[in-house]
Amino acid sequence: MKIQKEHLEEQKDKLEGEIQNKEQHKERLEGNISQLEDSAAALDIKEEELIVPTLNTNPLVKNAWNDIKEELSKSIPAFGQKEWREERRKAIKTILTYLQTALMEAKEAHNKDILKLGKSLYHKAMQKAIAIIEQNKQLQKENGRLTKENDVLRKRIASIDENAITRLRDKKDAEIKELQERVCKAESEAVRSGNKAYSEHQRAENAESQVREMLDIPEIKEIWESIKQNKEAFRKQIDKWIKDGVAAIRNYADGKDYDFQTEQGNAVAWGIIAKAFEYDLDPTDEKQRKMAATYLLEKVSWTGIASDFKISLTVSRTQQLCDVMTVSKDLMSSLLLAAGGRGGICSGGGGSNGELTNWDGTKKNTGWGI
């Protein structure tokens, strides 16, 4: 009996050592679970992150209406009423054009904010959901391993005191139950993360759908199409000015004139302005205008010119024309509006007298008329 008791005590001591090892495993596992819970909690997206600034166009419309009322409130003169009405019409058209541009810019910025927010939240949620799913897999593996070890341990202590076995079994069952609850919680968090990611993806798709729906509104679509058509028309006009400018330089090189004729000079001047636009230069600046003139000359083919002297003279006259040109800020403002699709194009330099014109069609009288 004494030997058996000692043997039983040895088995109990050995079992207690194994239980201590399991306790250490359990503590490490709890640390992993705690990290998993922190990751799951990080998926909670704050409410302020979901707020997109409201598209408020009221100030733009209000300012435009106030400007129109101010124009309409101007007194009708006793004489020149036709001119007075034309001035009011042009002023109101300018106000409405600016309003259209401002509304389009505000809409575009708002749409970009919506798309950016949706995609950002979607990617964030997906990344964190993937991390939780991966950790959940590791947790399930660890749970399976501990369950197997527990089964082996139960068999080894079958001969020990029944009360001790019951207490040990209850303790292990409690551990397994707690672990299973944590696994279930982690799985729930992973599902919730997936749902959140899907929701944000749907939000982004809805935002894109709203943009398409806005373009289905006839008034907005008409404005947008008008802007695109104006941009394309301006691009074609730039190409024509460059082509006409190159042709004028070549015609001068082929001819016997000592200097550019008026029509040729105006075509070259507009070609220089067009080249400045093509290379994003400012033709009102003398240095940048000269660079544009150099680029225009580079497009001229000198094949067949009678002499090197005529080529040199043509280049010199083109540079001199560039030097005496004066390009007004008002003209550049009008051209920039046209480039953005926010105004029509006055061909300038394409009239019957070959002189450059103001944006409103009147002739220029300074420098080369620009």
Rank of each mutant, 00 (worst) to 15 (best):
M104I: 05
R154W: 07
V152R: 07
Q202F: 13
A102Q: 04
E142P: 00
S120T: 09
L103Y: 09
Q138N: 07
M104V: 03
E149D: 05
Q202C: 13
E105F: 00
S120M: 11
L96W: 10
A197E: 08
D161K: 07
I157V: 08
V191H: 03
E86C: 01
H110A: 11
N150R: 04
K171D: 06
R156M: 01
L117S: 15
I160A: 03
G80H: 15
R169E: 07
K171A: 03
C184E: 08
Y198D: 11
I157F: 08
E189Q: 10
L72N: 13
K119G: 15
R156D: 07
S75F: 11
I130Q: 10
A174H: 13
P77M: 12
I68E: 14
Y198M: 10
A125C: 08
I157L: 04
I132D: 03
R154Q: 11
I133H: 07
A106Q: 10
M104A: 06
L179F: 12
N163I: 06
K171Q: 07
K128E: 09
A109W: 13
H110N: 15
Q180Y: 08
G194C: 06
R167Q: 13
Q100E: 04
K93S: 05
K119M: 14
K155E: 04
K128C: 03
R89H: 09
N195H: 06
R85G: 03
G194D: 12
P77A: 10
R167I: 15
I130W: 03
